[in-house]
Amino acid sequence: MLRLLKIEFDKLKYNKASRILILTYFILLVLIALFAVIKFDIGPVKFHLAEMGIFNFPYIWHFNTFIAGLLKFFLLLVIVSMVSNEYSNKTLKQNLIDGLSKKEFILSKFYTVLAFAFISTIFVFLVSLVLGLFYSSFIESSIIFTDLEYLIAFFVKLVGFFAFGLFLGVLIKRSAFAVATMIVLFLVEFISYSVVSAYNRGTDLADNIYQFLPFKSLWNLIDQPFSRLSAVKAVANQVGEDLSYDYAVHWYEIAIVLCWAALFIFLSYRLLKMRDL
């Protein structure tokens, strides 16, 4: 495993575009901290995000994993290009001739996906911990370490998303087209979901079906955290809107995404195995 990771690490390390994207991603993760300094102070309207409780433990785990989840697109570009470049440089062929098996090739990419997801999770954990210790109203360890399942969900979300990107990279062989395909698939899923739920207003039909589809299942892992803010809740109560919402991370949501990830990796391998290079 270490050998395969080292091989892949070498390939990424020397690639300028990948280096920049990875760096940008991790810098942006740190910049989540910048939410802390969002402060409006216009006469009677005082708005300081950090003081609205977004950095309160354990809510911060939910909020930060959600925001960090939005940044995964940067790493997607790296994942997709690290596969498609192997095709365009024909280095995949050379790797196989040099004695890498097709299985090892896919595994080296998959381990890299796991490594990215893991490092991101650690990163988000550390950034959130520091931010929380600075701004949280409660810093008892029992409170700090509740709701850590959001970090697990975050890890699984990244693995699922990157595995999808990996598969599209293998399938389509061109980074730009692979990313475009992903966007199209997202739109197809999103629009059809909107249509189905519009026709079945008042029922859970759309959600029940779409929870099994790739993008919706990824989305379901970490629900939007905004309506959970006490400030938002207060406003909602005033206008009479009921915002009771299930924010928890459910085991079946994780299971669905893990199934997709496994399927994508398996299909990538099958595709590579079938193909003549």
Binding site: Y14, K90, T91
Partner: peptide
């Protein structure tokens, strides 16, 4: 085989 295949940026 055929053309030499290496990572161009390395």
């Amino acid at each position: 085989i055929e053309r030499p295949n290496f990572y161009p940026y390395m």
